[in-house]
Design a protein around this nucleic acid. Structure first.
Length: 725
DNA sequence: GCGGATCAC
DNA sequence: TATGGTGATCCGC
């Protein structure tokens, strides 16, 4: 999209600014700035959204106030010292200044809107925007005159410009066009870095080198005539030779800067091709300079897609990005690779233009009297005392016109998420259900990339636009919808319970997975974990009928992987089944010897006899209703419990860990409580972990952790897995 | 590791 | 009637 940062500096109202107002060139059509502000204000005032914006603004003001206070306490002594330190740093930066790379930033003009206009001639002469009544992605230049901009809700845009046509986005189409553009870009830098569908950085240093020896032939491109361009200019116009070399794209940008030389224009052809008049008709040759290369790129993009792009050329990415904005749309700008040119360019550059300086940072720095890069440099010592190290170093680099000189290949992704906005949702049932849906979607996306992670985060936004995130990290990896939901559900439950009896009034919910592990790590993890299965499922009805069943019968070492002999052994793990609450059942305890971290042990609390019994006697929900009427019996421990949900009942499991094993776990940075919480997640197909784990008692060398789980009687897989590592 | 914030697109 | 979704990073706990 076009930069949303092209906001004016003389802002009276930050909120209006944030909503995308811009200087409005007084033209025949459109609205002036004042009118735009007024209309937006009328539409937004009093809304929950607006109230929240005010709240956030107050917080920022508070931050600024704190900063000013801090500033007041700085002594000249401190400042002098800081100055020395910062200047030493600046000197080092200066010495590392690298002007040897040629970085190009390419930015498609009003991309989505331009694609829609290209493909639908009816839209060509109208103000349009792509998006929906609730949010616009981009607008064309005609609509911008009315103050209609990206990130503005469509219904407000309509008030600004009633004639506005809002086109729903066609992302598949944009992706296809983007691919065409990227094919061209790859010719100049196979390692170019795409920032989005419509933006990319290229390092053309190597291409330039190579190009110096290229014959004209390799820099020659034939001009496609308008005949093949479905929605181009009228044919007669296109066929005029004088028009040939001009833009072949539809007239998207009537306010295109006049000084701009369209790619492949006559003068350029003359420069390069004076002795070859034949080529003037239908082909164009580009030179060997960076500027020519970028003209060639833009020319090829336009030829191929009928869309225009803007570009910036500079010795680093930070400058290139700013440059591409300079002659937008359909223009380019270069900062020559010498220090003076960079400094001249930087001198009066408003810091807000720099990628990374957003609305809040701008406001904070403005409070210190800093608006331009020069001022940013002048205040470097002060900034080093008021901001974090990373921040002031970043500021210093910007103020010196420095930036990345090489394009780092984007590394592996660090998180994946889904989130959705909806009309108010207040019932827990709906919320859980939506949460589950989001988890499924996320799991599907994760599977596409084969990712597994350890941290699940939920995001909630209430109807007042207040956002909350809650995260839970486990030591194993999760990836399936069920695994993610088990954790997300608990996080959601905690939030619902916290506000109970008031419902959460939500307008957005999201689920994210992070702390990804590489494939090898995942394998290691999955093989390594000690898995203690406590399978209360298959025998619970037996237990219920016969609480006297010998625990030895249902204790079974199911699985042992790895080599126990080379084990650094875990002293013991004792499992008791709710000794206190369920005194009717003898405690179950295991001593696992030689159980190495690299091995996997699974202990099943299971009766083989019960396995054969269970099918015939599966209790039906209605049975419980009859038997208990609001009171259910835990089938394992016989504990009576009240519940309103008669299709489910709780099973309690307590685990006692001795000091040795806890130390082992801590050594591996495993929090037993978290681990237990994770372990008790649902592994059955409809069971529910009812309660988070609580550390209940510390007695002697043992620490007891308890969990309980809701189990549906008809669930064939009601297992409770507890595993460490 | 968590949660709030900021930023880009 | 109505103000997005995804990913990254940083800071202060």
């Amino acid at each position: 999209m076009d930069s949303t940062k092209e906001k004016n500096d003389s802002c009276k109202d930050d909120l209006l600014l944030r909503m995308g107002l811009n200087d409005n060139k007084a033209g025949m059509e459109g609205l002036d700035k004042e009118k735009i502000n007024k209309i937006i204000m009328e539409a937004t005032k009093g809304s929950r959204f607006y109230e929240n914006e005010l709240k956030k603004e107050k917080q920022v003001n508070q931050r600024i106030e704190n900063m000013i206070q801090q500033k007041a306490q700085i002594t000249s002594q401190q400042l002098r010292k800081a100055q020395l330190q910062v200047d030493r740093c600046a000197m080092e930066l200066e010495q590392s200044r690298d002007l040897n790379n040629t970085i190009v930033h390419i930015d498609m003009d009003a991309f989505y809107a331009a694609v829609e206009m290209r493909d639908n001639p009816e839209l060509k002469d109208k103000p349009i925007a792509v998006g929906s009544s609730s949010m616009l992605s981009t607008s064309n230049y005609r609509a911008r005159r009315f103050g209609v901009r990206a990130a503005m809700p469509g219904f407000i845009a309509k008030k600004l410009c009633p004639q506005l046509t809002i086109v729903p986005p066609n992302f598949d189409k944009y992706r296809a066009v983007s691919r065409e553009v990227k094919e061209i870009l790859a010719d100049y830098d196979p390692n170019f870095m795409a920032m989005s569908l419509d933006e990319a950085y290229l390092n053309i240093t190597a291409h330039l080198q190579e190009r110096q020896n290229w014959p004209e032939d390799k820099r020659k491109y034939f001009i496609k005539t308008g005949n093949s361009l479905e929605n181009g200019k009228p044919e007669k116009e296109l066929n005029k030779p004088s028009e040939h070399e001009r833009s072949v794209s539809p007239l998207l940008f009537e306010d295109s800067p006049p000084d701009l030389q369209p790619p492949g224009n006559t003068s350029q052809v003359n420069n390069e091709e004076q002795n070859n008049p034949q080529t003037i008709q239908n082909s164009v040759v580009f030179g060997t300079s960076a500027e020519e290369v970028v003209k060639e790129i833009r020319f090829r993009i336009e030829q191929k897609t009928t869309l225009t792009a803007s570009a910036g050329i500079a010795p680093n990415t930070m400058l290139a990005k700013v440059c591409s904005d300079k002659n937008k749309p359909n223009g380019q700008y270069q900062i020559l690779p010498n220090r003076q040119a960079v400094m001249d360019f930087i001198k009066d550059l408003p810091i807000r233009k720099v990628s990374g300086i957003g609305k809040v940072t701008e406001k904070m720095l403005k409070a210190l009297g800093i608006i331009t890069c020069t001022e940013l440099y002048q205040q470097r010592a002060l900034l080093s005392l008021l901001f974090s190290e990373t921040s002031w170093r970043y500021f210093l680099q910007i103020s010196m016109g420095l930036g990345s000189t090489h394009l780092t290949r984007d590394g592996e992704r660090k998180s994946m998420s889904v989130e959705r906005t909806f009309s108010e949702m207040s019932t827990a049932e709906e919320q859980y259900s939506l949460c589950q849906e989001l988890c499924s979607e996320l799991a599907r996306d994760l599977q596409k990339e084969g990712l597994k992670g350890r941290t699940v985060t939920i995001k909630l936004k209430n109807v007042n636009f207040e956002v909350k995130t809650r995260a839970s990290t486990v030591s194993s990896v999760v990836s399936t919808a069920e695994e993610i939901f088990a954790l997300a559900k608990e996080l959601l439950r905690t939030e619902i319970d916290a506000d109970s009896p008031h419902p959460l009034r939500l307008r957005l919910m999201g689920v994210r997975l992070s702390s990804f592990l590489s494939e090898e790590e995942v394998n290691k993890k999955e093989n390594v974990h000690h898995s203690f299965h406590l399978c209360e499922d298959r025998d619970y009805e037996t237990h219920q009928k016969n609480a006297e069943i010998d625990s030895e019968d249902c204790a079974e070492l199911v699985e042992t992987i790895g080599n126990p002999s080379e084990a650094e052994s875990i002293d013991a793990l004792s499992n008791e089944h709710s000794k206190e609450e369920c005194s009717s059942l003898p405690s179950t305890s295991f001593d696992i010897e030689h159980c190495h971290q690299n091995s996997s042990c699974a202990v099943a609390l299971e009766s083989e006899d019960a396995g054969s019994l269970r099918r015939q006697e599966l209790p039906q929900p209605h049975l419980y209703e009859e038997i208990t009427d609001q009171v259910l019996i835990c089938p394992v421990c016989n504990l009576e419990q009240k519940t309103s949900d008669l299709t489910q009942f709780n099973v309690h499991v307590d685990i006692c860990l001795n000091k040795g094993i806890i130390q082992e776990l801590k050594k591996d940075k495993v929090n037993p409580v978290n681990q237990f919480k994770e372990s008790t997640r649902n592994t059955g197909n409809s069971g529910r972990v009812q309660k988070a784990v609580t550390k209940t008692k510390r007695s002697g060398l043992m620490t007891k952790y308890s969990a309980s789980k809701k189990i549906k009687p008809d669930n064939p897989r009601n297992t409770l897995d507890i595993f460490f590592k």
